[in-house]
C-alpha cells in the first residue's frame, strides 16, 4: 500500500550507480589534467542539480506513467482529460442503473483554464503597477528612489504565508478596512472569499518579481542616450517611447516570466483569501498528493504543468533572445 515503496529496487541502484559514476569521472578528470581545473568547481552544483532537480523530474515522469502497482499505464493522463475516467469505469462495473452517472469530468481542465486566466490577470496587473513603480525608483531625480527599493524588499523578508494570512485581518467583514468604512458611516463590503481577494493576494506576493527586473534594466540604461534624444528634439513622451521603453523590454520579459510562472502554480492563497471556494492548479496537485494520496495522477498533473511552463518560457525567450533581462528566461 505504501506509495514510497512503489519504486522498483533498480531505481535506487541506478541512482547509486549514477552518483558513483560522477565521483569516478571527477577523479579521472583530476588525474588526467594533473590538477584541479576551475570548471571542476561547478561539480557540487551539478551534483545538486542532478539530485534535486533532474532526479525528481524523472520520478514525476515515472509516477505519471505507472499505476498504483507500478505497471505502465496512460490512465493518469486520461484522468487529466476526463477527471471521472476512473470512477466512470467503476460505475460501469456496478450495473446499468448507474450509467446515468457516467459523464466526462471537467475538473482538471476547468481548474487549469481558471489558473491560466488568473495568472494572466495577475501578470497584467503586476506589469501595470510595477512598471511605473520601477520607473520612479530608477529615476535619478527622485531622491526617495532607493528608499522605495528598500521598502519593497523588507516585506519579502517575511514568510509569504504569514503575509497572506495578515491580509485576512484587513479584509474580513469585521476586519480593519470594513471597520474603518463602518466608522465613516459607509456600508461595509465583502472583500474576502472571492476571486478579487485571491487576485489581490497574488499581485501583492508577486509584484516585487515584476518590479526588480524592470528596475535593474532601467538603472543599467545609459543616461546619455536620454540626453542625446532630448538634444535631438524629442519631448519626454517621445524619449520614453523611442528610448526608455525599448531598452527596458528585457526587464519586462524577465518580470513577466517571473510573475507568470509562480502565479499559475499558486496554492494556499485561494484557500486562505478565497475561502477554498475556488481551487487553482497548485491546490489541485496538492489535493491529489496529500489528501487523496494519488501520486500517479498528481504526477501527471505536475508534468502537464511543467510542459505548459516550458512552452510559455520558450515563447518568451523569442522576445529576449540575448537573455538581457537577467537571463531568467
Amino acid at each position: 500500500m505504501s506509495q514510497s515503496l512503489n519504486l522498483p529496487g533498480w531505481v535506487f541502484w541506478l541512482l547509486g550507480l549514477m552518483l558513483l559514476g560522477m565521483v569516478l569521472l571527477a577523479l579521472v578528470a583530476v588525474r588526467r589534467t594533473n590538477g584541479i581545473k576551475r570548471s571542476y568547481f561547478s561539480a557540487p552544483y551539478t551534483l545538486w542539480m542532478v539530485l534535486f532537480t533532474v532526479v525528481p523530474v524523472l520520478l514525476i515522469a515515472y509516477y505519471s506513467l505507472t499505476d498504483a502497482n507500478g505497471a505502465f499505464t496512460l490512465d493518469n493522463f486520461k484522468n487529466f482529460w476526463d477527471s471521472n475516467y476512473s470512477v466512470n469505469q467503476l460505475y460501469a462495473q456496478m450495473g446499468p442503473e448507474y450509467a446515468v452517472l457516467i459523464q466526462r469530468g471537467t475538473v482538471n481542465i476547468g481548474i487549469l483554464a481558471y489558473s491560466l486566466w488568473m495568472a494572466l490577470l495577475c501578470t497584467v496587473i503586476c506589469l501595470a503597477l510595477g512598471y511605473p513603480a520601477a520607473y520612479f525608483m530608477a529615476d535619478r531625480e527622485i531622491k526617495i528612489g532607493s528608499t522605495l527599493v528598500v521598502l519593497f524588499i523588507i516585506p519579502m523578508w517575511m514568510n509569504f504565508l504569514l503575509r497572506t494570512v495578515a491580509w485576512m485581518t484587513l479584509l474580513e467583514d469585521q476586519g480593519l478596512i470594513n471597520g474603518l468604512l463602518k466608522a465613516l458611516g459607509l456600508h461595509g463590503a465583502q472583500l474576502m472569499y472571492n476571486d478579487g481577494a485571491v487576485l489581490l493576494g497574488m499581485v501583492y506576493n508577486f509584484l516585487p518579481f515584476m518590479v526588480f527586473p524592470i528596475y535593474t534594466s532601467l538603472t543599467k540604461m545609459d543616461s546619455r542616450l536620454l540626453e542625446a534624444a532630448q538634444d535631438l528634439g524629442a519631448d519626454h513622451l517621445r524619449t520614453f517611447w523611442r528610448v526608455t521603453a525599448p531598452l527596458s523590454v528585457p526587464g519586462v520579459i524577465s518580470g513577466i516570466s517571473m510573475v507568470f510562472m509562480p502565479s499559475v502554480t499558486t496554492f494556499f492563497i485561494p484557500r486562505i483569501l478565497g475561502g477554498g471556494n475556488t481551487m487553482m492548479f497548485g491546490d489541485l496537485i496538492e489535493n491529489r498528493f496529500l489528501t487523496e494520496g494519488n501520486w500517479n495522477v498528481g504526477s501527471a498533473l505536475s508534468l502537464i504543468m511543467m510542459i505548459l511552463i516550458l512552452i510559455s518560457l520558450s515563447v518568451l525567450r523569442k522576445a529576449d533572445p540575448e537573455g538581457e533581462g537577467g537571463g531568467i528566461v
Binding site: I111, M279, T291
Partner: peptide
C-alpha cells in the same frame, strides 16, 4: 474524492 473535487471546483 471525485465528487468532492466536483463540488470544490
Amino acid at each position: 474524492n471525485a465528487m468532492w473535487l466536483d463540488i470544490k471546483s
